[in-house]
């Protein structure tokens, strides 16, 4: 609360006082009152004006100053009411009450939206489980009736599964509640499952899946990590170069405090201008525009999931040479002790 502004706001009081004082002076002069009376009454006027100006200012200043300062310092400014003492002047009480009511109605609104979101998420999860049943049926039928079912049907079927999974993990990673379980996981097993899942695609595209020594254990949710790794491998397949020996090389770097999973390919790479944005939502970049197969969601979801799991994900690339994705897992000392 700035005094200058407050004063300007109360300027009418000053004019009122001056007018009253003037009138009073005229009356005193008309009745030929003694000078000392005029002086003392003028002094009283000035004093009472100052009191009327300053007392409310100091009464209100604390409340409004706290209000503004707390709003500025809180990262969730709608919680400001919780931090304030109830004001002891009427205007403040009105404001306080109004803020309280607004807060309450907003909370109800937010709760409603959260409920809707939760319902929607549950529906999506249920829908995904439902949709997986006919997908499994198709996979089985295509396997059992090879004479009637073209082998080519397998790849679009896998794409379909991948897109369905993407929706599932998007819903899970965007959700506030914890949908994962962190435990000690064999990296080699995750890498194997991702390999098996993408085997047909890799063979079809003549990309070698090169796995170096990966006998390491990390703390993660294996399903989530499988999905994350799957997105990266999918990208490598999508953005391969037309050269004789395409590969995806997976290796692990083990250090004292962290373990890093490195996925490197010799695909078309990413231009420097696009590199910073690849983890952004719906970002497709030049590569995505050229191939027309990109949703721009894969890496965004992967990044979000890494954030939730507490892993670091980084990307490095040279256009027309390579793309390298690094996922870093912290080692938990406390966990080591428990073992």
């Amino acid at each position: 609360m700035k005094f200058s502004k407050y004063f300007k706001d109360n300027l009418y009081k000053l004019w009122l006082f001056i007018a009253m004082m003037g009138l009073n002076l005229l009356i005193f002069l008309a009745f030929k009152v003694d000078r000392s009376v005029i002086l003392s009454s003028t002094f009283l006027y000035v004093l009472s004006f100052l009191l009327i100006l300053f007392i409310p200012y100091f009464r209100k200043k604390k409340f409004y100053d706290d209000l503004l300062a707390n709003i500025a310092s809180l990262d969730k400014s709608y919680l400001v009411l919780e931090t304030l003492a109830k004001p002891e002047f009427y205007e403040g009480e009105l404001l306080y009450q109004a803020l309280y009511e607004i807060n309450k109605s907003m909370n109800e609104n937010v709760r409603l939206i959260e409920e809707h979101l939760q319902d929607f998420k549950e529906y999506i999860e249920m829908w995904i489980h439902e949709v997986k049943i006919p997908l499994s049926t198709l996979a089985l039928i295509s396997n059992n009736h090879r004479d009637k079912f073209d082998k080519k049907a397998k790849l679009p079927l896998k794409r379909l599964e991948d897109y369905v999974d993407q929706v599932l993990y998007y819903a899970r990673s965007e959700n506030a509640e914890k949908d994962y379980l962190i435990k000690e996981t064999d990296l080699s097993k995750v890498i194997k499952n991702v390999g098996l899942k993408n085997m047909d695609d890799l063979l079809e595209n003549r990309i070698d899946y090169v796995v170096e020594d990966v006998q390491h254990k990390v703390l993660t949710d294996s399903k989530w990590l499988e999905f994350i790794l799957g997105q990266i491998v999918n990208n490598s397949i999508k953005y391969k170069r037309d050269i004789a020996s395409s590969y995806i090389k997976i290796s692990v770097q083990d250090e004292e405090k962290r373990t890093t999973l490195i996925i490197e390919d010799n695909g078309i790479g990413i231009k420097e201008a696009d590199l910073k944005q690849v983890f952004d939502k719906s970002f497709t970049g030049e590569n995505g525009r050229n191939t027309n197969k990109a949703t721009g969601m894969g890496l965004f979801i992967a990044k979000n999931m890494c954030k939730k799991l507490g892993h670091k994900i980084a990307i490095d690339s040279k256009y027309n040479e390579y793309t390298k994705v690094l996922i870093t897992f912290a080692k938990d000392k406390y966990y080591d002790v428990l073992k």
Partner: peptide, 27 residues
Amino acid sequence: SINSETDEALSISYGADDYITKPYNPN
């Protein structure tokens, strides 16, 4: 068709020998 670590851990703790999620690769 529920692909989640929690459900898997639960099933294994109930005594399942393995846990496979749909849609599975027949091989």
